[in-house]
């Protein structure tokens, strides 16, 4: 999973976990932050997924060497 999405998911979890400890007057802040970070996590995950689909990961230099060596021997 995308690292940024994971980071936002963690932030959403922390915001939600603080909800019971917050005074009633300010609980909406925790709730709003949990929702915003969840939306950002979903958005980031979708963004990473669409980027990956448009530009599939190229094989690394080691894999390319292996491929070249393989094609050379055949």
């Amino acid at each position: 999973m995308d690292r940024r999405a994971l980071f936002f998911l963690g932030a959403a979890a922390v915001s939600a976990a603080l909800y019971p400890a917050t005074d009633t007057q300010h609980r909406w802040v925790c709730l709003a932050l949990a929702v915003v970070y969840t939306v950002l996590a979903v958005g980031s995950a979708l963004d990473a997924w669409s980027r990956q689909r448009r530009h599939p990961a190229r094989p690394g230099p080691r894999a390319r060497k292996g491929q070249e060596a393989g094609s050379g021997s055949s």
Partner: peptide, 16 residues
């Protein structure tokens, strides 16, 4: 407790 909660919430709010 209010101050402690906002130790964590204020940077999260700023970040978002």
């Amino acid at each position: 407790r209010k101050i402690a909660v906002f130790i964590v919430l204020s940077p999260l709010l700023g970040l978002a």
